[in-house]
C-alpha cells in the first residue's frame, strides 16, 4: 500500500483529531464496571406479558407492602408508578384504539417497572453512607435503611427513576425492588418471576438470560417457540407460543453500562418509558472519574493545602510585621 504525502497528512490529522475527541470524552472517566459472572437477573418479555398483574400482588405479599390506591374510592391496588408503597408496577402503552397487542399504532403493550439492578449503578455510587450496596456475586442492588440519611441523592441520580422515598411519613425511608434478596437467600426465586403465568418475567443467571434473549431474536417471527417459565433452566413446564416480531435489540445489554434486568419488546423501548439514546458507559464512571482524579489519595488537596498554608502564612506574617511595626511607631 502506498500512501502519498498528502494522504498521509490527512490520515494523521484525522487520527489526531479522533484521539483528541476520545480523550476529551474519556479524559476523567473510569472504566464502567463489568457484570459478575454469577450475577442473577431477569428477562422481561413485553410480548409475553398479559397484564394479569399477578407479579404486582406477589411483590406486595413478598415484601409486606400496603395496598396503594389512587382512586377516589380506594378499592383496588392501583398505583400509578412505583413508590414508597409499590416496588413493581405493570404499565400500559396504548395508542389510538389500543386494539392490537404489541403494535405501535392502534395497539398496546405492557411494561414492568422496577429496579433494573444496573451493572454499574448510580445509586450505589452516589450514596454517601453505603446504604445502597451491590452484591459482588449476585449483583443485586440492595438498600439498607438503617444507615440511610434520606438525602435522596439516589432518587435524584437514578436514570431509571427507581428509588422512592416515603414523603408522607414522619420517619420515611427509601423503597426499591431488592430482587427479593430475602427469598433468594432461602433458595427461592423473586416473587414476580415465581408467579408469572407466561414466563414474561423470567428469572435466571444473566449469562443464561442473554443467550435466551439471543435465541428469541434469532427465531423467526410467527414460529412456535418454547418459553421457559419461572426460573431459566428449572423443570417447570414451559409454554409454547408464537414468537413475536421483536425489536432487534435487548434493552439492558449495553445501556448505561448494562443492567441485570433486560427487556424485550415488539415496540420501541422509548415507548415503554425506557431511556434510549443513552451512552454505553455508566454515569458513575464519569462522576467518579472526575472525583477520583481530583481526590486520589487526597494527594491534590494535600499539596494544595501545603501551598496555600505557605502562601497565607507568608502573607499574613508580612502583614503582622507591618502591623507590629506601625504599632511600635505609634507607641
Amino acid at each position: 500500500m502506498t500512501v502519498n504525502r498528502r494522504q498521509f497528512l490527512k490520515m494523521a490529522a484525522t487520527g489526531v483529531g479522533a484521539s483528541l475527541c476520545t480523550t476529551q470524552a474519556q479524559a476523567l472517566q473510569r472504566e464502567t464496571l463489568k457484570v459478575s459472572p454469577d450475577a442473577v437477573g431477569m428477562l422481561y418479555d413485553s410480548t409475553l406479558c398479559i397484564g394479569c398483574k399477578a407479579c404486582m400482588v406477589a411483590c406486595k405479599n413478598a415484601n409486606g407492602m400496603p395496598v396503594e390506591s389512587t382512586d377516589v374510592n380506594p378499592m383496588w391496588d392501583t398505583p400509578l408508578e412505583t413508590s414508597g408503597e409499590t416496588l413493581n408496577v405493570i404499565k400500559l402503552y396504548k395508542n389510538g384504539t389500543g386494539e392490537h397487542k404489541d403494535q405501535l399504532d392502534d395497539g398496546f403493550a405492557f411494561m414492568k417497572r422496577h429496579c433494573l439492578h444496573c451493572v454499574d449503578p448510580s445509586c450505589v455510587s452516589v450514596c454517601p453512607v453505603s446504604a445502597m450496596t451491590k452484591d459482588a456475586v449476585t449483583g443485586i442492588v440492595e438498600h439498607h435503611k438503617d444507615r440511610c440519611i434520606g438525602c435522596r441523592y439516589c432518587v435524584y441520580s437514578c436514570p431509571f427513576g427507581i428509588p422512592k422515598y416515603e414523603y408522607d411519613k414522619a420517619f420515611g425511608q427509601i423503597q426499591k425492588c431488592q430482587f427479593c434478596a430475602h427469598l433468594q437467600a432461602k433458595g427461592e426465586i423473586p416473587a414476580c418471576c415465581d408467579v408469572c403465568p407466561t414466563g414474561a418475567t423470567l428469572f435466571g443467571r444473566v449469562d443464561d438470560l442473554k443467550k435466551e434473549s439471543e435465541r428469541r431474536l434469532q427465531a423467526k417471527p410467527g414460529d412456535r417457540y418454547v418459553f421457559p417459565r419461572g426460573k431459566f433452566g428449572s423443570d417447570r413446564p414451559p409454554h409454547e407460543a408464537a414468537i413475536a416480531q421483536y425489536q432487534e435489540h435487548v434493552y439492558g445489554l449495553k445501556e448505561l453500562g448494562g443492567t441485570q434486568i433486560m427487556y424485550m419488546s415488539a415496540i420501541p423501548f422509548d415507548k415503554l418509558g425506557l431511556p434510549v439514546n443513552v451512552p454505553d458507559y455508566s454515569y458513575p464512571s464519569q462522576a467518579e472519574g472526575i472525583q477520583h482524579t481530583l481526590y486520589k489519595w487526597m494527594l491534590a488537596p494535600a499539596i494544595l493545602l501545603g501551598g496555600l498554608s505557605y502562601v497565607v502564612h507568608r502573607n499574613t506574617q508580612k502583614k503582622d510585621d507591618e502591623k507590629n511595626a506601625s504599632e511600635r511607631r505609634e507607641s
Binding site: V129, S130, A131, K145, C151, Y153
Partner: peptide, 29 residues
C-alpha cells in the same frame, strides 16, 4: 436546611462513621 430536608436526619451520624463512608460519593465529599 440540610437537616430539615434530610429524610432520615437521625441517621446523620453515619456520615461520620468510617465504616459507612462511601468514598465514591460526591455527596460524602
Amino acid at each position: 436546611a440540610v437537616m430539615i430536608d434530610l429524610g432520615r436526619y437521625w441517621n446523620f451520624w453515619t456520615l461520620l462513621w468510617p465504616g459507612y463512608m462511601q468514598f465514591n460519593s460526591v455527596m460524602l465529599e
